[in-house]
């Protein structure tokens, strides 16, 4: 007998991730030896808002969802803690932070939303893309930077820049016409969105990893026997590994193409990708301690009194930060 599995995928503009997801769900019945009837739709194609993912899992509307962790932090601020702005400035550090936080994350997800973590992976390091010569965070002073989360605003303001809120689709025209000077996004998104046409300088200081997840509702989970569950877990782990690898590779490729390097095999741009000056590391660390962590603590402890303490024990310990 067929077991239905209603899955929601990533945004369809992220064509590569969608491809990976589609292939994954395509081979899932075979990989798990189950007679699964998977229906798969990218979230924007059915008009599902990224921020509603946890609610859709909890209500049983969907069985598995691709989740933009930063967006669903609306309903659970602790989730933002996995990938707080400025805390992990490269993929290796991010992986350590995610491993340290995974268990607490999953526990909270199960308790509050009756869903479980199947995979956690980064979309890719988020850099500064600017249409003026920005070679260090010190150069951001006085510039307009598109920001979309409270901690990003705190960080940007700390560097003396002016945070501006814009919908993602408005960022390209706004960069082009000088409404903002810099946007923060992954190299993959910037490249896919042709930002290279409207930016001149990339500061590849990763302020976040764009953490995403694949979560399954416990209602769906319980439809499976323990053996089947083990097979599902293994399959999703494999997907997770694939997406981590893809994040690394695609980041390097996109940066190369934005810079117009010879090893780029697709469309080339002529952006200047600066080397991040060593002083920036200390500047970011200072900003994280003085503004990002307090912002996070205030919003998170309001909902969950243990939040900061749990974060200190997990992600904080792995990355050498302590929320006071």
């Amino acid at each position: 007998q067929q077991i239905p599995l209603r899955a929601v995928g990533h945004f369809s503009q992220n064509t590569k991730q969608i491809e990976i997801e589609r292939a994954f769900y395509g081979r899932l019945p075979q990989a798990t030896g189950m007679n699964l009837a998977v229906s798969f739709n990218p979230m924007d194609q059915i008009g599902v808002q990224a921020a509603d993912a946890l609610r859709h899992l909890r209500s049983g509307a969907f069985d598995v969802m691709a989740v933009l962790v930063g967006q669903v932090a609306r309903d659970e601020p602790f989730f933002d803690g996995l990938d707080l702005i400025g805390v992990s400035t490269n993929v290796e550090d991010l992986q350590k932070a995610v491993e340290a936080g995974r268990e607490a994350f999953d526990k909270r997800l199960q308790e509050r939303f009756n869903a479980r973590v199947m995979a956690l992976w980064p979309f890719g390091p988020q850099y500064f893309f600017c249409n003026s010569p920005v070679r260090s965070v010190a150069d951001l002073r006085g510039l307009k930077v598109r920001s979309y989360t409270p901690s990003m605003t705190a960080l940007v303001q700390h560097f003396g820049a002016i945070p501006v809120t814009l919908q993602f689709s408005e960022v390209y025209p706004s960069l082009q016409r000088g409404l903002v000077t810099c946007g923060i996004t992954s190299a993959v998104s910037a490249y896919a969105g042709n930002w290279g046409e409207v930016t001149t300088h990339v500061l590849p200081l990763s302020v976040a990893g764009g953490i995403q997840g694949h979560f399954m509702s416990n209602a769906a989970w319980r439809r499976f026997t323990p053996e089947q569950q083990a097979k599902l877990t293994a399959a999703f782990r494999e997907l997770e590994t694939e997406l981590w690898t893809f994040a690394r590779v695609s980041d390097a490729q996109s940066l190369a193409c934005l810079a117009g390097k010879p090893d780029c095999t697709e469309r080339k741009f002529t952006n200047t990708v600066s080397a991040v000056p060593p002083e920036d590391d200390a500047r970011v660390r200072e900003a994280v301690s003085s503004v990002v962590l307090p912002t996070f603590r205030d919003s998170c402890n309001r909902v969950w009194a243990d939040c900061a303490a749990v974060w200190n024990r997990t992600v904080g310990a792995a990355r050498g930060y302590t929320i006071p």
């Binding site: 930063g70 609306r74 601020p77 509050r112 920001s147 979309y148 989360t149 990003m152 809120t165 919003s299």
Partner: peptide, 17 residues
């Protein structure tokens, strides 16, 4: 649900939903 989760928009404004 917004009341139960004490949802606040994860935006600079942080609007209570």
């Amino acid at each position: 649900e917004s009341i139960e989760f004490q949802s606040h928009a994860n935006s600079p404004l942080g609007t209570p939903m």
